[in-house]
């Protein structure tokens, strides 16, 4: 349930940026879409915008104040920013750990 909700928030954020920047490739993304790095659809500034968009949506909808670009994110063996799915999973994990903290 939470996983699907976060997945939708991430996709929605990408679409908003796609519309704003007139980038059609950001309008037809799915969970397998590569976000950042080789063949990624975002440059570093694009990633910054997506992260801040997603954090804002989570704050507004779920009333949870999280920092996605955390020490934990940066120290993962496989970057959570690689694909939409990996970012979604990372955020869900972050929210669950906040819940249990």
């Amino acid at each position: 349930m939470l996983n699907k909700q976060i997945l939708n928030l991430v996709i929605e954020s990408l679409k908003e940026i796609g519309e704003e920047d007139k980038k059609p490739e950001l309008l037809k993304v799915d969970k397998t879409t590569r976000l950042y790095g080789q063949n990624g659809c975002l440059d570093s500034l694009g990633l910054v915008r997506v992260i801040s968009n997603v954090e804002e949506k989570i704050s507004e909808i779920l009333k949870k104040d999280i920092v996605i670009a955390s020490e934990k994110a940066m120290s993962q063996r496989s970057s959570p920013f690689l694909t939409i799915e990996s970012l979604t999973n990372f955020i869900v994990e972050l929210l669950n750990s906040e819940e249990n903290a």
Binding site: E55, E56, S59, E60, D65, I66, V67
Partner: peptide, 14 residues
Amino acid sequence: DERQVVKMVKEVSR
């Protein structure tokens, strides 16, 4: 305090 600052700024933004 990172947690408090994040909470404050997100509340103001909301």
